[in-house]
Each structure stands twice: as structure tokens, then as C-alpha cells.
Design a protein around this nucleic acid. Structure first.
Lengths: 98, 98
DNA sequence: TTGACAGGCAAGTGGCCACTTGCCTATAAC
DNA sequence: GTTATAGGCAAGTGGCCACTTGCCTGTCAA
């Protein structure tokens, strides 16, 4: 229940959106890989714990699926929940000359 | 700047999402019309002020445009900002048989 | 088996945000 | 003019949430 609440809550944070960006750029990263990218490319000095919690929120929203392998946990993006947004509020066709 | 911050903040509240639903159903409503619909159809006993503030947030996000006429102010939905979402994180093509 | 590495659990804290409350402006009907 | 209607401005408050902190579990190499 409350699937859209989880979805929009997940999208509501800027750091989580950047995480989705990085997973779009390179899917299947570990927590530490993601953290490295946030620091390098986005000057986001987040704690490991903070990012871990962000990933949990993204997973609950169905935007990220995880896969365990040994002591690694790989994170995979899934954009299909976003479809509910454009289905709920259809986007007007682009009109070339208004 | 921070256009997407405004956008996702606007979408982050359940009442605002219902307001977008109602404007999708019937565009160009006044504040009191919207309030009436929230009470009737969604059992949301919100104050006029609360809804007014919600509409301001939606307007700042570009999801709602307003038009004044006499003492009335009509609210029009604009879903085009939503396009940035699916452009940012492309939605995978639906695969009929995985 | 001992240490390093990848990740998890849980309590505490500070800031943002939704909502209320009270008062005010403007248009229109009587 | 007087009254009702439609909406606005601004300060105060409570709750949720991002983030930290401290400690713990599990995997692999040496």
C-alpha cells in the first residue's frame, strides 16, 4: 500500500536523485562505489550510513533492486515505477507552434 | 535554479497530488472549488489557507498556472515539467515476454 | 585466526515543512 | 454604504526526515 507515497518520498531528496543518476550512468554499483562517485563528481561528503539509508528508501520505492554476492551488494536501478507518474497525469503533446 | 527541487518538493505531498488529480479531472478551478472537491471526494478536511499554500507550491514548480478574473483566480494544470523526470531517468521499454 | 573490508542496526538530533491562527485587501451583490 | 464572498500575508507550532554516532555481523585474504 501507499506505493506512490514511497515513490515520491524517494524522489523528494536531492541526494537520492543523484544516486539514481549515477546508477543510470553505471548500473550495478556497490555502496562504496556510489559513495565514491558522490564525493568525486558531486562534492557530496555523505557518510556511508547516510547513503545506505538512502538506498533503502530507493529500494522500498521499487526504484532500486539489490543483489547480494559474497560480501558485496550490487544495486540496480529500475525506472518502471516512474511510469505511474505519467500515467496519472498525462503529459500534453508537444505543440510546435503555440 | 533548482527547478527540480521545486518540482519534486511539490510532488512530495499527498494533498498536492490529489489537487493535481482534481485539476486533471476538471481544469481551471478556483480555490474554493478545489477545496470542495477535496472534502467531498477525498475526505480531506483542509483549511482554505492550507490549500492556498499548496497551490502556491504547485505554481512555483510550474505544475499549475493561474489566471485572475475579477475576484476569482482560476488554476490550470501544466504537466510539462513532468517530462524532465522521464528524460532524466529513461523508462525501460516494456518487454512482453522476459 | 587475525585483520581488513563491505555492510547492517538503532538511538539521538536538528532542520525543514505542512498546517493553523489571526488579521487584512479586493471584488461584487443588496 | 453595507455585507458577503474570494483570496492574501505572516508568525507560530508540531511532526517527520536526513544525518550522525556508536557498535555489531559477515566475508575474504594473509
Amino acid at each position: 500500500m501507499d506505493a506512490d507515497r514511497d515513490l515520491f518520498k524517494a524522489l523528494g531528496d536531492a541526494t537520492r536523485r543523484v544516486i539514481l543518476d549515477e546508477l543510470t550512468d553505471k548500473d550495478g554499483q556497490t555502496l562504496f562505489e556510489i559513495r565514491g562517485r558522490l564525493v568525486m563528481k558531486h562534492d557530496l561528503a555523505s557518510t556511508r550510513q547516510a547513503i545506505s539509508q538512502h538506498l533503502a528508501v530507493l529500494e522500498q520505492a521499487g526504484l532500486v533492486h539489490t543483489r547480494r554476492q559474497g560480501r558485496f551488494k550490487f544495486h540496480h536501478i529500475d525506472t518502471s515505477p516512474l511510469r505511474s507518474i505519467i500515467e496519472r497525469w498525462p503529459i500534453d503533446r508537444e505543440e510546435p507552434h503555440p
